[in-house]
Each structure stands twice: as C-alpha cells, then as structure tokens.
Design a protein around this nucleic acid. Structure first.
Lengths: 236, 236
DNA sequence: TTCGCGCGTAGAACAGTGTTCGTCAACGAA
DNA sequence: TTCGTTGACGAACACTGTTCTACGCGCGAA
C-alpha cells in the first residue's frame, strides 16, 4: 500500500535521539529519586516517564504495573539495610533491636517506601536477606521455630507501620513547629473533654503527647517486642 | 425579569423529587455499606454520590474531604467495638488480649476500615472511648504512665496493621484456594533458593507459611505484646 | 403576600491517576 | 533488500478528589 500522493509530507521526522535505552534499573533509579525528594505520592508512572523523557506506556515494557514498581522500591530499601551479623546467642536481644533500628533508619532515608511496603509481603532478594538475618538472630535467641517464623512477620510489620505513620506527617510537609502546634492543639482538646467519661485520657494527656518527634516511642516499641519474645524463649 | 415570550416552554421542570435531604449520617451510612460489600478502593466520592442519587459536589457541604470521611468510617468501626470493662487488676493481661481481639473483629466486619485508619491518629469520640478503655486496663496492670501512653499507641498500630494486611488479600478477592495456592507457590519458591545464602528461610519454610489464614499468627502477636508489657510492669 | 437572601443541591470542569491500544521506527535474520 | 519482531510512545479510556458556578427552594423580613 503506497502513500497517497496528496498526503502532507512526513512531519519533520522525529528522528529518535540516540538516548540510552530504557531498562528496569533506570526506571527504579528514577522512581527512587523522585520518591526521596518529593514523597511517595509524587511517584506516578507519568512523572517517572516524563523524568526519563518518554511516555508512560514505555514503562510497561519493563515493569508489570505500579504495584510491582512499588515492590522494587521496597527491595531497594531492604538492600540499603546493613544488618548485624553473625547472630550472637549472648547478644541476640541487642542485635534484634539494632536490626529494627536499622530497618527504620533505611525506611526514613526513603520517605514513602513504608507506604509501598505496608500490606504486601516483600519477597525480593534483598527483603529475603533481611528475613534471613532476623531468622538467625531469633534462632540464636532459642525461640521455637514457629515463634521465630511469626516473629519475622511481626517485626517488619511494626517497623513499617511506625515508618508509615511518620511519613504521613512528612507527606503533609509538617515542620517541627507544625508538629508542636498540633500537639498543643491535641493537649487542649484532651483538656476540653468531658471529665466523667475520659478521666484517664485527661490525666495522661502529657505522656500521651510525649515522644512524638524523637525515637523514644519507637525504642519503647522495640523494647516491648523484644521483651515479649524473650519471655517466650526463657520458658522453653 | 419576565420570561422572553419566544423561549421554549419550560424544559420539563426538573421537579426536585421529595427526597430525604442529605446529611452527614446518610453519607457515612452509604460509604460504610459500599465499603463493606465492595472494599475500601470502591469508596469514592463519586460512587457515594451516585448511590445517593446526587452529584459529588453535594457531599462537600457535609464532609470536608475524603480524609475526613475516612476518619468518620474509622470512628464507626470504633463505635462497633464492645470492649471489656471495668478494668480488673487481676485479669488485665487477659482483658488486654480480649480488647485486641475485639478490635480486630470489628475491623474485619468492615473490610477496608484498616486502610482508612492506618497512619492517621483517630480522634473521634468512639476512638477515644477505646483509648480510654485501653488506658484503664494498662493502668490496672500497674505500668508506668509513659509506658501506658505509648502502649496505647502501639496496640492499635499492631491490630490495624494486621487487619490491613488481611484486607489486601481480601481486596484481591482471594478465595481460600487462592491463598493455599499462593502458599504452595511460596513454599516451592523458598525451596528453590540458593541453599548457601538462605539456609534458615529454607529450613523454616513450613512455619513461615503456617497460620496465614487463621488467628494463630494474631494470637502470637498479642501474646508477645502482652508479655512485653507485663515485663515492664513487673520490674516496677 | 411578596421580595430577597442564603443555603443546599448538583452539573460541569480541572488536574491528576493507572493502564491499554495501536502505530511507528529501528534492528537482526533471511 | 525485505520481512518480522521488538521496543518506544502519543493518544485515549476510565477513573479519582476537588472546585467553580449556576440554580431553585424555603424562610425571614417588609
């Protein structure tokens, strides 16, 4: 089928520029960069495509869908964790806490990865490596196998949830002053409650609004979990 | 200003049907209904408006935005929980576990509410009531005030995360067979790993994939948390 | 009774989203 | 040289939350 003669001449020939071909790694790199400096909400297929100077459809040749891209980002975060090893039966509780701190640290450097990780079992290679590490520490602690397995589910669940909660605040661009202002509002809200129905909430308004910014609350959480797991080990 | 005489006859008169006026409660009712039988993802302003035979803009007269609607749904779930009371110092650990089971139960009857609850401090009246209840139980357990306060943060975080994880599966319409198939795939995936790098993952493939369907894993989690909190109380 | 005002209603539009369709250029094999 | 395959990608589809704007009804004031 030849061209119709009256057709307008071919429009300026897009002349595909000799640019680096797309691949999965470049896509994940770009997504990670966008996520780090604009947050998870900004990571859209369109934005990444634009950043790579292409159209959104091009990405689908290398990534099944957005969910898979999310998983790849999670795996990047997991790869960035350097966890304690080898497991030491004498120090397993401290090692466990160190591991949890490291997990939170890695998730903090990539705000938004918690949002991508929550509610989806991470099965990438790097994620499995962290699981393997946790398994080692917990086995060194002398926990029964079933407890070890479930703990490996519980621990990332908690850390991810904490990171996610922090990122919700970060996503709204809260400054420390905003946070303090929010807490002030919260305290006066607690103070305005009906005293007959919420006596404890009112009495504990101070502690309830403490430690929101720093790591104290997280340290409390990992202490509770570690102590709880230790109690299972001791009664073996 | 009279009508121009040449104007076409009044166009069928929209005749606003004598329908019940919109209000916040009807909106939340509808949203809840949609969420229960179609999941959280299906709860959109448009869909709710359509369900109420109106346009999406109408909702904004009664609800500030989607986030606020989410919070109202969460509060409905909180209102549906009937928690143990009064606190009993002799049975505080069992009461705590009962409370957590009840929280999960309520969230299960409203699949999707966990998605709405996660990462946003619930401050509605019903949510405060559950906090107050937890505060009572934990105080009865003899925990220090700061521990009580942080525990009240930790507990809903865990329960919500578990419920959310379950709902991700439910959202994808997984049947029990699908779940079993997924676990089979997981086990064979574990079996195919390089044995030198993932020895523990392979050895514990059984326990790792156990208890995904039932409540055993959740029971383990609440036991760990309760034991951890108890250890803080005992060393007072 | 009539006027005017305000509030609730709601259609249309805006700026996004994930994803798919169909086309087009480039490249290796025949 | 021609063919077939593959990757790239603009356009379009079906959505989303939210806002603008006009419209009509009920209610209080005159």
């Amino acid at each position: 089928m030849t061209q119709s003669p009256w057709q307008p001449i071919s429009p300026a020939k897009p002349v595909r520029p000799a640019k680096e071909p797309l691949n999965r790694e470049r896509i994940v790199d770009t997504a990670l960069r966008v996520m780090i400096d604009q947050g998870y909400e900004a990571v859209s297929m369109r934005k990444i495509a634009q950043e790579l100077q292409t159209g959104p459809a091009s990405l689908y040749a290398h990534v099944a869908n957005k969910k898979e891209l999310d998983q790849l980002l999670v795996d990047r975060a997991a790869a960035a964790m350097n966890l304690p090893s080898p497991p030491d039966p004498e120090r397993w509780q401290e090692q466990l806490k160190e591991a949890m701190r490291e997990m939170l640290r890695a998730m903090r450097t990539m705000p938004g990865v918690a949002r991508a990780a929550i509610g989806a079992v991470p099965l990438g290679e790097a994620a499995l490596r962290t699981s393997e590490c946790l398994l080692g520490i917990l086995k060194a602690g002398g926990l029964p196998d079933q407890a070890v397995a479930w703990a490996v589910d519980l621990i990332p669940l908690y850390v991810t949830a904490v990171a996610f909660e922090e990122n919700v605040q970060r996503a709204d661009q809260w400054s420390p002053e905003d946070l303090e202002q929010f807490l002030d509002g919260l305290r006066s809200y607690f103070a305005s409650l009906p005293a007959d129905r919420f006596p404890l909430t009112m009495a504990l308004a101070g502690p309830l609004t403490a430690g929101a910014a720093g790591d104290d609350r997280f340290e409390f959480g990992i202490s509770v979990i570690t102590a709880g797991l230790a109690s299972l080990a001791e009664r073996r």
